[in-house]
Design a protein around this nucleic acid. Structure first.
Lengths: 259, 259
DNA sequence: CAATTGAAAACTGTTGACAGTTTACAGTGG
DNA sequence: CCACTGTAAACTGTCAACAGTTTTCAATTG
């Protein structure tokens, strides 16, 4: 039964569907497939070298994750996250982050506190030297550690899902160099409150930080009136959504029956 | 093939997969399929009169929803929610409910406040007359209205998902008649705080209420039987349990035909 | 008689094909 | 020249079959 342990072994343990889903998700989050664009099952299957079955299952999984929306007999679209929906996501993430911080103030171990503090220090160095990519990576790691240490697996899972959804709104955004110091000051406040064991202050600091991210971001983008097709607002616009173009399914007309 | 039925025409607009998923979900939540049990694709497909494709997609959707866990080359199991996981779910729901109450205290319209107050009154009547089924239905409606009025669609969706997951733990539970009055008193506190526009009090009342539900429930169930299945860890490392269901002592899989 | 081994059965993963529906486009008539 | 209609193409939904893997059980062997 000796099986060659190699890269293929990974393929063995992970189903094709999960690999396809990961790949499509990567395409979406990296922007290679833009928001509002339609996913052609056949094209994707051919591009990935599999049949349509795994592609279908993968897209359905992404639908559950909120990254795409599926319309029967019509196709799967990369979801468009409106400004209001993005604000809702920020609110939820603020809530979850505050919860995690509160919990950490009550239960964090010394090692965990040190780890968080260490991350803040390294972010400070990255911010001062203007290294935004390093700061970005450390920032992700910091938030991941917060949720991981909080000891609520479901909360962490939901948070990650929300983060992915938010990527659909802010195509790249990230953190402007000028904002890194401000952002990290809030990180420091979180770590300080956790270190002091002040649960209420930690919760507030966590909420404030994510809300601060929302404010920093919403200030940066004045309006979403960019190159995207303005189909979302006006259902009275003459052109109906076509399979070839990038349009939002939104409200689909009643299936008219012609013989 | 020109189907004349109008009822089936409605089926047209909804995909078969979604119907199958709804049906399987109903089987799970109603307890017709017990926790830890394996879902046989072929049997389900035959029972529902469809092929395995839609059944597969449906089960994958349920996996995303957290109701089942899938293992490659092995099958899909109804998830077992441990005591600790159930507590995590309660914590998250408390958080979301508190958030909704806080938001409502700030933004609820007069009509919304009246609607909530009306529900509490009717629950009070049901509680005093010992009508637990009516109370249960009104309770669901109350919590649904809370999340609906809060104006955060994603929060509502997550909350509903958490509620479904919790059903996997407490098979029936519900609210004991003796607890109805206590539970509704907390409802009244929520409505009062919202009516007064006190966001902080509303948030606390909402959190307290769900935590109260957790307390009322956790007091009722002394302990969960051990025999912990190694499913909770990553599926990549652990040795697989047998398909015959060795870790499920009570319910054994149906014996296979063999000559 | 117990342990082992080999093969068949059962089940999941994946694929290809068929059916129904929607869109696109060309042809026709005003 | 524009609107309308009918047909063809493309795409999704669904199904049936094939392939790989795991489990079960009987036969064999010590």
């Amino acid at each position: 039964m000796a099986r060659p342990q190699s890269a293929l072994e990974i393929v063995r343990t992970r189903s094709l569907t999960s690999l396809v889903q990961q790949e499509i998700e990567s395409m979406i989050l990296s922007g290679r497939i833009k928001a509002g664009e339609r996913l052609n099952e056949q094209v994707l299957a051919a591009k990935l070298g599999v049949s349509r079955g795994p592609v279908r299952e993968a897209t359905r999984g992404l639908e559950r994750a909120g990254l795409v929306t599926a319309v029967v007999n019509y196709g799967v679209y990369v979801r468009k996250v409106s400004r209001e929906e993005a604000f809702e996501l920020y609110d939820l993430r603020a809530l979850l982050t505050g919860f995690a911080c509160q919990r950490l103030a009550e239960t964090a171990s010394g090692e965990q506190r040190r780890h968080l503090s260490n991350l803040v220090s390294r972010m400070d160095a990255a911010a001062r030297s203007g290294n935004s990519t390093t700061y970005y990576a450390l920032n992700l790691e910091f938030h991941d550690a917060l949720m991981r240490f909080a000891g609520n697996g479901r909360a962490k899972q939901i948070d990650e899902s929300l983060i992915k959804e938010m990527h659909l709104f802010r195509q790249r955004s990230l953190v402007a160099p000028a904002n890194m110091l401000e952002s990290n000051a809030e990180h420091q406040a979180i770590v300080a409150a956790i270190g002091a064991g002040d649960a209420e202050a930690a919760r507030r600091a966590g909420e404030t930080h994510v809300r601060g991210g929302r404010r920093r971001f919403s200030g940066a983008v004045p309006e979403i009136k960019s190159a995207g097709p303005p189909m979302s607002a006006g259902p009275s616009t003459a052109k109906r959504p076509s399979k070839g173009g990038n349009h939002e399914p939104a409200t689909r007309q009643q299936p008219r029956r012609r013989s």
